[in-house]
């Protein structure tokens, strides 16, 4: 049954603002005639019906305000490159000079095959991580990539002692926690993400150098690996940048690699350097990484062997010094004794 007295919405709002006490709504009267009174949800207060309720948080916790507008492609690429840089300790950098799409397809196919082969070989020896399947050769926007690299290298967010209080974002939940003004401000110290203004300002410093600056110009492609796996580096380099130490696969074993499309594409792909766990390696350094036998365990074995060698060498050296001293002193004593004997024999 509609209310007998028809009120204008303006009057209602006036009534809601003037009365300080919460407005009393007689639910019983309103729903007396409806049969399913228990199933209906209570209507929101009248001033919520006339105005939208004030949003409590102006941004969801997963989308804090960023320095550059987040809807721009460059912002999203920046975020993506930061994530790539953080998640891949091993990265090979290439320059691609006008490689055609068909050539890229061929190169990617050959690379995937080689990495799969390396994966299978490692799996046979018990390493079932399958690093090769999650590696990726991608073209990057050089300028945005350079900026993302600076943020990753030099932006160390100073986390607050107390994490910011989680604002109740759900208006239905009543809460007694004080609600701060959550208008997004760029300089808010609680914003620690890589797209924040703080990160931008930290990475803008031109004095900070990470060593890869000279490489970051021109058309760039990167090959990312999720772990430092020398076997995969070797497999990738044998395809993308074969050399004397890491030769290309033979025509007999992989005829598709010697396809003219792949070969013309590879000639236009220049291997520039690598970034391994934050350190810069040139071509020779990357080849050395690829030539480590047996990965990290192999390197540890080499180190142990070397240290053992040093140990035995050291004891030999120390011993020899003692021995030579002993010999010298002995010799001198013999000489002195001889002299004394001679002196005695002369005096007699």
């Amino acid at each position: 049954m509609p209310p007998r007295l028809r009120l204008q919405s303006k009057q209602l709002r006036l009534a809601a603002t003037t009365t300080r006490a919460p407005q009393y709504v007689c639910w019983q009267c309103r729903h007396a005639s409806t049969a399913a009174a228990s199933t209906t949800t209570p209507a929101p207060p009248i001033d919520h019906m006339t105005h939208a309720p004030r949003p409590i948080s102006h941004y969801p916790p997963t989308q804090p305000p960023s320095y550059k507008p987040p809807e721009f492609r460059k912002s999203q690429l920046h975020r993506q490159y930061q994530s790539v840089l953080r998640s891949s300790p091993l990265m090979l950098l290439f320059q691609h000079n006008n490689i055609k799409a068909t050539e890229w397809t061929g190169i990617r196919r050959e690379l995937a095959n080689a990495l799969k082969k390396a994966d299978e070989e490692l799996a046979r020896s018990g390493d079932e991580t399958m690093v090769g399947s999650s590696s990726k050769l991608q073209i990057v926007q050089t300028g945005i990539f350079a900026s993302a690299l600076k943020v990753v290298e030099f932006w160390e967010p100073k986390y607050l002692d107390q994490p910011p209080v989680n604002e109740p974002t759900d208006p239905k939940v009543s809460s007694s926690t004080p609600i701060h003004d959550t208008q997004p401000t760029n300089r808010d110290p609680s914003l620690t993400h890589g797209l924040s203004k703080n990160a931008y300002l930290a990475a803008r410093n031109a004095k900070l150098q990470h060593g890869l600056e000279p490489l970051l110009s021109g058309p760039m492609a990167i090959l990312t690996l999720p772990t430092v796996s020398p076997a995969h580096v070797k497999a990738a380099l044998s395809i993308l940048s074969p050399s004397k130490e890491i030769p290309a696969p033979k025509r007999r074993t992989t005829p598709s690699y010697h396809d003219p499309t792949v070969q013309t594409g590879l000639k236009k792909l220049m291997f520039l350097g690598a970034r391994v766990e934050g350190k810069v390696f040139d071509m020779d350094g990357a080849k050395w990484v690829g030539s480590i036998e047996g990965g990290l365990t192999g390197l540890r074995a080499q180190l142990v062997g070397m240290l053992q060698g040093i140990g035995s060498g050291l004891t030999n050296t120390l011993e020899s010094a003692g021995k030579s001293l002993y010999l010298t002193v002995e010799g001198r004593r013999g000489m002195l004794e001889d002299e004394q004997k001679e002196g005695k024999s002369e005096g007699q």
Binding site: Q95, N97, N98, I99, K100, P214, S217, G218, P219, K268, M270
Partner: peptide, 13 residues
């Protein structure tokens, strides 16, 4: 290095 690489990037496919 940059200049030479830029020159190579200008050559046609």
């Amino acid at each position: 290095g940059k200049t030479a690489r830029n020159f190579l990037a200008l050559l046609p496919p």
